[in-house]
């Protein structure tokens, strides 16, 4: 399909700008929903200010040191994770004819970014050379193998009606009917993957408090801030992808495409962050059993439904 091309610097600017605003929005939403879920009503002023306050606090904090860390890897792991969030966002079409990098194999690019994100999280836990971070990293990788399979099956199912791995084609194929109606299992499974890969809420099993902070147990100050920022950015990218692959992305009446995409992304974000507040942390061993025994067969079912519908 023919798409518009932008100069590379404009694309980079769009992606970085969107992610900067997006990750701040995720942090603010996290605070807002926390008060709302706790019954304190919607306090916009507090929610908007809280991320800045936390960031300022972290920036004033002293850096912790560990014995014989791998300093370069430790410092670069958040950058790698955030950069992968940006790479993942480049393939998401912002309007029905424009994505920053509209690869013919968009779904595979997304999968590569997800797979390398797992490596980034492992390195973040391995590099401080400390016990709890390594345990968190190990546990995350063991779980991540089940997220990755789920993610690929539901995204391939979403690509089936379009008969293309290109995301602008996938959006175009949802003109008549969104994938969320066509494949009702897809979006919920993708939300599970999103929470898993960004270790958010119920699936916060990499940085959880039962491991004294997991992979970021030894991170403090600006390093912790950048890691949390990267994590918010990744959650934003996942929400944008969920909105694109299952909710029709920029498709919709009256409003221009980017606004529709933004609206749907925010809806997905509210669901994700809200789930993070409402559902308690899942025990990892139970999640592995559920993941392989229940969620993976459901993903197969999703693929089967998509395949049957795609038959001529």
């Amino acid at each position: 399909m023919q798409v518009a091309h932008a100069p590379w610097w404009l694309g980079a600017l769009v992606v970085v700008g969107t992610l900067a605003v997006g990750s701040y929005a995720v942090a603010a939403l996290h605070e807002l929903l926390a008060t709302a879920v706790a019954g304190g009503g919607v306090r916009v002023g507090e929610g908007v200010a809280a991320p800045w306050r936390r960031a300022a606090l972290l920036l004033r904090q002293e850096r912790t040191r560990t014995e014989a860390p791998d300093p370069i890897t430790w410092a670069l792991a958040p950058a790698l994770y955030g950069g992968l969030a940006a790479l993942a966002l480049t393939v998401v079409p912002l309007s029905s004819t424009f994505a920053v990098a509209d690869f013919r194999t968009g779904i595979v690019v997304w999968g590569a970014a997800e797979a390398l994100a797992i490596v980034a999280i492992f390195l973040h836990g391995w590099s401080p050379n400390s016990l709890f971070p390594l345990v968190g990293a190990y546990r995350f990788v063991a779980l991540a193998l089940s997220y990755e399979l789920l993610s690929m099956f539901v995204l391939i199912a979403a690509a089936l009606p379009a008969e293309s791995l290109q995301l602008t084609d996938i959006v175009a194929a949802q003109h008549g009917l969104w994938n969320v109606v066509r494949q009702p299992l897809g979006l919920p499974l993708f939300l599970v993957v999103s929470l898993g890969v960004t270790f958010w809420g119920p699936l916060d099993l990499a940085d959880s408090s039962d491991l004294a902070g997991g992979t970021s147990a030894e991170a403090s100050g600006g390093q912790r801030l950048s890691w949390q920022l990267a994590r918010c950015a990744m959650l934003f990218s996942f929400a944008a992808m969920g909105a694109t692959a299952f909710l029709g992305g920029p498709l919709g009446p009256w409003l221009p495409g980017p606004l529709w995409l933004l609206t749907k992304t925010v809806v997905v974000l509210v669901i994700l962050v809200g789930l993070g507040h409402v559902v308690g942390r899942v025990p990892p061993e139970r999640f592995v059993a559920v993941g392989w025994g229940l969620l993976l067969p459901l993903a197969f079912l999703d693929l089967l439904v998509a395949g049957l519908e795609a038959l001529p």
């Binding site: 013919r104 590569a112 797979a115 490596v119 391995w126 990788v141």
Partner: peptide, 21 residues
């Protein structure tokens, strides 16, 4: 070789992750 390039990165990231474990 667009598909192969990305598929190689995708697969090997997971494979080397398992290797490191």
């Amino acid at each position: 070789a667009e598909y192969l390039g990305f598929a190689l990165i995708f697969m090997m990231a997971l494979e080397m992750m398992v290797m490191a474990l």
